[in-house]
Simulated scan of single mutants.
Amino acid sequence: MIQRRVVMVGYHAAELLDIACVTSSLVMANLHGGAPPYGVFLATPSGLPVTCASGLTLQGQLALERVTGPLDTLVVSGGIGHEAAAANRLIVGHIRRLARESRRVASVCTGATLLAATGLLDGRRVTTHWRYAHVLAARHPEVVVDPGPIFIRDGEVVTAAGVTSALDLALAFIEEDHGVALAREVARYAVTYLQRPGDQAQMSIFTQGPPPSDDLIKRVVDHITGHLDTDLTLAALADGAGVSQRHLTRLFLKHLGQSPGRFIRRARAEAAAHLLISTPLPMTAIAARCGFGTVEALRQAFVDRYGIPPSRYRSVRTAT
Rank of each mutant, 00 (worst) to 15 (best):
I2C: 06
Q3S: 14
V7I: 05
M8A: 12
G10V: 02
H12R: 14
H12F: 12
V22S: 01
G33I: 05
A35E: 15
L42Y: 06
T44I: 08
S46N: 15
G47H: 12
V50M: 05
A53G: 02
S54W: 03
L56E: 06
L56V: 04
L58I: 04
L62W: 03
A63W: 10
V67L: 02
T68R: 15
P70C: 09
P70Y: 10
P70V: 09
D72I: 06
D72Q: 13
T73H: 09
V75M: 06
S77V: 10
G78R: 11
G79P: 05
I80Q: 15
A87N: 12
A87V: 03
N88Q: 12
N88M: 10
L90H: 15
L90A: 15
H94R: 12
H94T: 04
I95C: 02
E101R: 11
V105Q: 11
G111W: 06
G111P: 11
A112P: 11
A112N: 11
T113Y: 15
T113G: 13
L114Y: 09
A116P: 02
T118E: 09
G119C: 09
G119D: 09
G119T: 10
L120D: 10
R125H: 10
T127M: 04
T128Q: 03
T128H: 05
R131Y: 08
L136T: 02
A137S: 15
A137C: 13
P147C: 04
I152S: 01
I152Q: 05
D154V: 04
G155P: 09
E156M: 08
V157P: 08
A160W: 06
G162F: 03
T164W: 06
T164S: 10
A166L: 05
D168K: 07
D177S: 06
A181S: 07
A183I: 00
A183Y: 01
Y193S: 13
L194W: 09
L194P: 10
Q195C: 07
P197M: 14
A201S: 15
M203D: 12
S204Y: 12
S204V: 08
G209Y: 11
P210C: 03
D215F: 11
L216F: 03
V221K: 00
H223Y: 01
H223N: 00
I224G: 00
L228D: 00
T230H: 07
A236I: 00
D239R: 14
A241G: 01
V243C: 03
V243S: 01
V243Y: 07
V243H: 02
L248F: 00
L256N: 01
S259E: 07
R262H: 13
R262V: 12
R265Y: 02
R265T: 05
E270N: 02
E270A: 00
I277E: 14
T279R: 11
T279W: 12
T279E: 11
P282L: 03
A285I: 08
A287H: 02
G291I: 00
F292C: 01
G293E: 08
G293M: 04
G293P: 01
G293F: 07
E296R: 15
A297L: 11
Q300K: 14
F302N: 03
V303T: 11
R312Q: 14
R317W: 11
R317V: 08
